[in-house]
């Protein structure tokens, strides 16, 4: 307690004429139980009224506030200043399009990803409002949920060196989504469809295995397990043909 924090924040507004990227410093007294969400809002209200950043739920569930905090991609709302040194460097997530300061456009990327992997349940059956729901094993429901917990914050992509170099790569978030759908008995896509979708250089074989996604994921998703499951499954599919 009682520290004076120095925030070094990346500032750039592409909509402002003649603006160029720079790092600005702000000082602030550290208060009890301070996290980066509260700190940034205080800074905006008192020192930098035009500071751009994104928060929505501020409870670690919406995935808006991914940023590089002292070099690592993570959620600002659940980063406590007491875990950080006195100097805190804030940069926007790399890879995504910069909208201004700490705000990046993750929405477009994730929408395109959803379109690419056709991220919905593929079924021929029509919904019958009168019928009882189809039964499902609770274990399967839990297993689907385990992967469904991804909040699309983009930290895995920001930490992934592969995706910086090969932007077509679906990244951990994309592969995790595919893994979630592959596990879902309601999705009627067959082996061949999965094979064509994910056995590609932009799919699971684009992954070099640098494992940063697993180290930065704020939701602790078992990402590597999902990928190895997909790899083995693809191998099986190919061998059975």
């Amino acid at each position: 307690m009682g520290r004076t924090l120095t925030f070094k924040i990346f500032r750039y507004n592409p909509n402002k004429d003649n603006d160029s990227p720079q790092v600005e410093s702000y000082q602030m007294e550290e208060t009890q139980r301070l996290n980066v969400f509260t700190a940034l809002n205080t800074l905006r209200e008192t020192q930098a009224s035009d500071l751009m950043f994104d928060f929505v739920c501020r409870a670690g569930i919406c995935g808006s506030c991914g940023m590089m905090i002292n070099g690592r991609p993570t959620l600002a709302c659940r980063t406590l200043t007491s875990d950080l040194p006195e100097t805190i460097e804030l940069y926007p997530l790399p890879f995504f399009k910069l909208l201004g300061d700490l705000s990046v456009d993750t929405g477009i990327w994730f929408r395109e990803m959803a379109e690419k992997v056709e991220s919905w349940i593929h079924t021929q059956e029509e919904f019958d409002p009168q019928a009882t729901e189809e039964r499902m094993d609770n274990d399967i429901a839990n297993k689907i949920y385990e992967a469904e917990r991804c909040i699309e914050c983009g930290c895995c992509l920001a930490g992934c060196a592969t995706v910086q170099v090969y932007p077509d790569f679906l990244g951990a978030a994309g592969l995790n989504r595919i893994g979630r759908l592959m596990n879902d008995p309601r999705d009627q896509r067959g082996d061949q469809e999965w094979f064509e979708l994910v056995s590609t250089e932009s799919g699971v074989f684009g992954c070099i295995g640098m494992m940063a996604c697993d180290d930065v994921c704020p939701k602790d998703l078992p990402l590597l397990e999902v990928f190895s499951y997909i790899r083995r499954k693809l191998s099986k599919i190919e061998l059975s043909k």
Partner: peptide
């Protein structure tokens, strides 16, 4: 109830009775 079943049909992994 219809809405819940509909969401189940479209992919929500509702917890199930064991």
């Amino acid at each position: 109830p219809i809405a819940m079943r509909e969401m189940a049909h479209y992919g929500v992994p509702w917890n199930r009775v064991e």
